[in-house]
Structures are given as C-alpha cells and as structure tokens.
Design a protein around this nucleic acid. Structure first.
Lengths: 163, 163
DNA sequence: GTCTTATTGAGAATAACTCTCTTTTAATTA
DNA sequence: TAATTAAAAGAGAGTTATTCTCAATAAGAC
C-alpha cells in the first residue's frame, strides 16, 4: 500500500503483507521464500528504534526455532536494504545494524565516537531535504540518514586515555 | 584558529598548521610525528570533495616517496576522525573513506545503492540541525553527515539483474 | 506433476582492519 | 646537548564481518 504525505512524497506504509512483499519481489523476477517472510516479520515486530546486527538476527531466529543460515541472513538484509525495506545503519565500529524503514517513524542517530552510546532523534526537515535532493537528481529515494558524530558528556569529563 | 559563525557555532578553520595540530595533540598527551603531519597535509591539499580510503592513501604516499606503513595509516585516520579533523565516510560497501572536515565546505552524499555512483550536495540546514541536536544533549559535535541511499536514473532504466 | 532457475545452506575464502611486540623517536628535563 | 621515558611506528600475524562457491532444494510457471 502506498500513501502520499502532505509533501507529495510517495512512501510505503510500514507494514508489508506477505502479498505485497511477494509482488515487489516478483516485479524483479525474484521469489518469496519462507526465510524472507520470517526475517521481514522479525523486523516488523521489533520495538520502534530497535535495530539488529546480522548476528543478533541469527540468535533471535534461533531462539524462536527458525533455522536460517547466516549466509541467508546476510543476503536477505542486504537485499531488503537495497529494496528500501530495511535501513542499513553504521552505529558501532565494526559491523552493520538493520532496522525497518518506516517514514512515519523516521529518525536519526547521534553517536559518541568514544563509547558508541547512541541517541535517537527525530527531525522533520531531514526527510524533506532527502526527498528534494534525490528528486532533483532524478534518483529514486530509498532512505536518508543524518548521522552525528560527537563526544558525549560523560566521555568529555573522562580523563582516561581517549584513543 | 577558531571562528564563530553567524549561528554561534564554534568551528575550526580548515587549515591546521603544524603548530595548531601539535597543540591539539599535546593537549591530550600525544605527539606530533612526521607521519601525522604528512598525512594531514595530503588531506588538506586534496581537491574539494575528494576522499581517500586507507589503501588509496597508502598508494598516494608511496608515489610521493613517503614510506608510511599501513598500520600507521589506519591508526592515524581513525585518530584524526575521532578528533574531528577528518570525516569518516561510508560510501562504498566494504571500506571507509576519509576526507578533511571543513565546515565551510560542508557537504553530504547521495549514493546509488546499485552502482555506488555518488553525488555530493550542500545544504545549510543540516549543519544547524546537527549543532542544535548535539548541543541539546550536551555532546561535543565533531561531524554530521546526511547520507541518502537511492537508485540513480541509469540504474532505474537498467533491466539487468539488480542484486 | 514437471521444469526451470532462484535461493538456501555449509563451509571455505576474502579482505578490511586491529593487535602484538620490538624498535624508534618526540618531547621533557638535567 | 645528552639522558630519559613513554608514545608512536613498522612488520607481520591475527581477527572477524562479510562474501563466495557449489551442490542441494524448492518457488513459481506451465
């Protein structure tokens, strides 16, 4: 299901049904598999703002009794990020995190470069800038993220060696 | 040298002298080495908007006759990113890029998720949002980047397998 | 049900990056 | 200017997130 917001920005609603996911995959000659359905389901039922690494997702699936291989997980999250279904986040230093891409809960990240503590924040203008910029260049927008790198108050006070 | 812009945002001028770099390092009990000076110099003399991977930087230094080890390069760019001297960019899929962090030439990136073609764009509001947000949370701002993931016109037209 | 081919799973391979340890050297002090 | 000491460099091994390969499986079309 597609909706048009007050800004004329065409965006997808947050919830894919099995059918809508299937349709989008088929458009590209791809298939809907149980694995893809289960993984999408996990992300859709995650609390707002929660994100998972590939390893996190693997563990979570295991505890729920779903035996999906790491290969498939890596392949699927990358596929869904490239389709615009998931957002690929660079929060910590050495691995990626993924979360559902929901325009209505669109948010950004303020990250401490020392302790990696992350604060989520919202800003209405950012999406508008992303929309305007991609339109102007003829790009099809998938996601836009404002990432702020900074030093948190606690790390500013710390006298320990920094790096 | 520090300047204060119309927004009361305290920012560093783009060019460090050997002395100002030295002073900032000494503040933290660190040292100015020829390697650090040379690496900073490379970034300062790069054309606006150009960015380098660690490997790029290594090759460039080699061609200029500077024998700086890869270890040192990785250590130095990370150090300078954490000091706010360099920006750490996530442009391609599997490695980071670095560029000088210049408030007066502050820009952002629109990236095609299929072919990785990247367009640089400016937007005055982004820096203000980053400044306001980090101030509000008591963070010390180092860098803020708006990254737009999208599909470029040429890849939209392409009928080749996508992923 | 059959056929085609995308997808999965398992594990090997890759490569960006970090770590360890020895040597070197920046910066301080005498 | 020489002695001191601790940070930094260099070399190469080690780590690990991610990708690749390939045989087996199964989704979707007919």
């Amino acid at each position: 299901m597609m909706v048009i917001n007050h800004n004329n920005w065409v965006m997808r609603m947050s919830f894919y049904t099995a059918d809508s996911l299937k349709a989008e995959l088929h458009e590209r000659g791809w298939r809907l598999t149980p694995q893809r359905q289960i993984i999408l389901d996990i992300f859709q039922n995650l609390d707002a703002g929660k994100h998972l690494s590939a390893e996190d997702l693997y563990d979570l699936l295991q505890t729920e009794g779903h035996d999906i291989s790491l290969s498939t997980i890596y392949r699927t999250v990358k596929l869904m990020a490239r389709m615009g279904i998931l957002r690929e986040l660079e929060l910590a230093e050495d691995h990626k995190h993924y979360e559902i891409n929901q325009p209505y809960h669109h948010h950004h990240h303020l990250i401490c470069v020392r302790c990696n503590q992350t604060i989520e924040f919202k800003n209405e203008s950012v999406l508008k800038i992303g929309d305007k910029t991609s339109k102007k260049e003829g790009y099809h927008l998938l996601d836009c993220q404002l990432t702020i790198h900074a030093v948190c108050p606690s790390c500013q006070r710390s006298i320990l060696p920094v790096y």
